[in-house]
Computed example of a mutant assay.
Amino acid sequence: MFQRRKVIGVMGSGTQAHRERVIPLARWIAEHGYDLLTGAGNGVMRTAAEAFVAVAGRTGISIGIVPGQATARGYRPRPGYPNPAIELPVFTHLPLSGKQGQELASRNHLNVLSAQALVILPGGEGTRAEAALAARYRRPAILFGAAREFRSFPEAFERLATLEEVCDWLLGVMR
């Protein structure tokens, strides 16, 4: 019988890694048999993917939604994408991000809609756009970190400060 894969999205800064939170989270996701989805870039995305694929014996895969552009000469992913720890790159022609992260031509829609649950770490305009899209699409999502790190994020989501709280929340959502 067909069984849909269980995918957890980890969203966050493309420049800051937040290693102390991201590495144990990504390892937990791998150890529990889930797939990991990121935006395939650097920062939180790369740290999560690297920690995830480093788990021996895991059954899940590292998926990355890769922004790019279709031109008269063919397809071109954004420079630096996908990061080396992405096992299944999903190449999209949607180039927008950052300030334009909620526009229809942003790959953020795919990031948000492709995961059954989203863990959002601190980040810039692109991460805030993903959180806003998660609220718009009513996707299960939480913010992982201190409340002060999420002052400009949508109020719709619970803010969890510890890995244990995040993992408990994920277990409830992923049933």
Rank of each mutant, 00 (worst) to 15 (best):
A56E: 15
W28S: 07
Q16N: 13
E164I: 05
R159E: 04
Y75F: 15
V7N: 05
Y34M: 06
A132S: 15
V112G: 00
Y75I: 04
T127F: 03
L143I: 09
A146L: 14
L37H: 09
T71K: 08
P95F: 04
A115N: 12
A147K: 15
Y137P: 06
P140A: 08
F150E: 03
I86W: 02
V55P: 00
L121C: 06
A26R: 01
V90D: 01
I8E: 01
T47K: 05
G68E: 05
F150K: 08
R175D: 06
V119Q: 02
V66F: 04
I8A: 05
L121M: 08
V66H: 03
E31W: 02
A131H: 04
V66Q: 03
V22P: 00
G14C: 10
I29S: 01
R128P: 03
A30R: 00
F2R: 00
G39I: 09
A105G: 14
A141R: 05
A26M: 00
V173W: 00
L170M: 09
G64K: 07
G124P: 11
A48R: 06
L170P: 05
L143Q: 10
A161T: 15
R138S: 10
T38N: 09
N111Y: 06
P82R: 03
T59I: 04
W169R: 10
G9H: 08
S152C: 10
L113I: 13
A105M: 15
R139Q: 15
E165R: 12
R19E: 11
S106H: 10
L104A: 15
V90N: 02
I86Q: 01
G74Q: 07
A48S: 14
L163C: 02
R76V: 13
R19H: 10
F157C: 11
R5V: 05
H18N: 14
M45A: 15
V44K: 03
S97F: 13
V112H: 02
V112Y: 02
L163N: 04
S106V: 12
R148P: 02
Q116R: 13
D35L: 02
R21T: 08
R128D: 03
R21M: 15
I61H: 08
A72K: 08
P67R: 11
G43A: 03
G101W: 06
P79W: 02
G14P: 02
T59P: 00
G101F: 08
I8T: 03
G9T: 12
A115F: 14
A51E: 01
R78A: 06
A141M: 10
G43Y: 01
R73T: 11
R76H: 07
A134W: 12
N111W: 07
L118G: 11
E164Y: 04
Y34L: 06
C167L: 08
G14D: 03
A115Y: 13
G14R: 09
E158W: 08
R46F: 07
Q3N: 02
R138D: 12
A132T: 15
A40D: 07
